[in-house]
Simulated assay, not measured.
Amino acid sequence: MSNKYLIFGATGSIGSSLAEQLTNSDHEVHLIARNEDELKPLSEKLSCTYSVADVLEENFIDKVKADTSDFDVKGVAYCVGSIDLKPLKRVSESDLHNCMKLNLYSAIESIKGFQEELKKNNGSIVLFSSVAAQKGFTNHTIIATAKAAIEGLTVTLAAEFAPSIRVNCIAPSLTSSKISQSMLKSPVVAEALAKAHPLKRLGEGEDSAALAKFLLSDESSWVTGQIIGVDGGRSALS
């Protein structure tokens, strides 16, 4: 049986960059996303397997496990995310539930689904938070709450799973991606947001993907329980 890395949210900016970086380094990957029209061409480009699954649907993990039964899992990267911006007075319980389901609950289900395989293979898990979890931004109640929960999950599972499975978290700042396009469609706004970062640019998918690749690999075998900012210096220097 071969070992593979699972990438949830594989058609996003970070997920697709991570898949490409891993395959370029001769690692095998299995891609998971909900849109087959985007997923299939990526899998063909990288010559890898894939599952069409929506993490918002109940029992989505059963579909992924059925598709991956003929290989072992070495690592899991949960690259699914959202940008949910509203002032508190407009935040509904449904908003909170949907965001928590996408970012947190389904991440937990993904980990539970492959916990035993990861333990057997001394595997690694990479989760994704946001700079907004630790640095206050107006209108970020929904997403900051969900991503702060991811950071708590990271350190808890790192303790629970040691020494067999490593668990780390990447906290990006605003990254150029499909979900951020509505914020970046105005060149003036995009330039202002870029200048809010000490490194004076927005993130790209490959920025976070490069760190995710390292954290998934055995090169980071003495790294666990860490929440690492890939944010152009925004969390520490702004």
Rank of each mutant, 00 (worst) to 15 (best):
N122Y: 12
A107R: 12
G113M: 13
Q134M: 10
S130E: 10
L237P: 10
A159H: 14
E160D: 15
C79A: 15
C169F: 04
H27C: 09
S17K: 12
K195R: 13
E116D: 15
E160W: 11
F161T: 03
A210M: 13
I150Q: 12
T154V: 04
E58I: 07
G113I: 15
A107N: 14
S2Y: 00
S130G: 10
S2E: 13
K119Q: 14
E57W: 10
L215A: 07
E36F: 00
A10V: 00
S177G: 04
Y5W: 01
N59E: 12
S2I: 08
R90M: 09
S177L: 02
S51P: 10
I7D: 01
V91Y: 01
S17L: 06
K101I: 05
L118T: 01
L174G: 09
K147L: 01
I170N: 08
L31H: 10
T138G: 08
T141E: 07
K63Y: 00
V189A: 10
M183G: 03
K147G: 08
I83E: 09
S92E: 05
T49Y: 03
S16M: 09
L22Q: 04
V167Y: 09
T154H: 06
L118Y: 05
H27N: 12
E151T: 12
N139V: 07
E44M: 08
G12Q: 10
N122W: 08
R34E: 01
S25R: 15
A10L: 01
V29S: 00
S17H: 04
V223S: 11
A148V: 04
S238L: 08
N121F: 00
E57Q: 15
K40F: 00
K4Q: 14
P172H: 09
D95Y: 02
Y105A: 10
V188Q: 14
S51W: 08
D37M: 08
L22K: 05
L42N: 07
K86V: 03
S182K: 15
L18P: 08
L199A: 03
G232R: 14
T23R: 15
L202A: 08
S173G: 14
K195N: 15
H30C: 02
F60I: 11
T141Y: 06
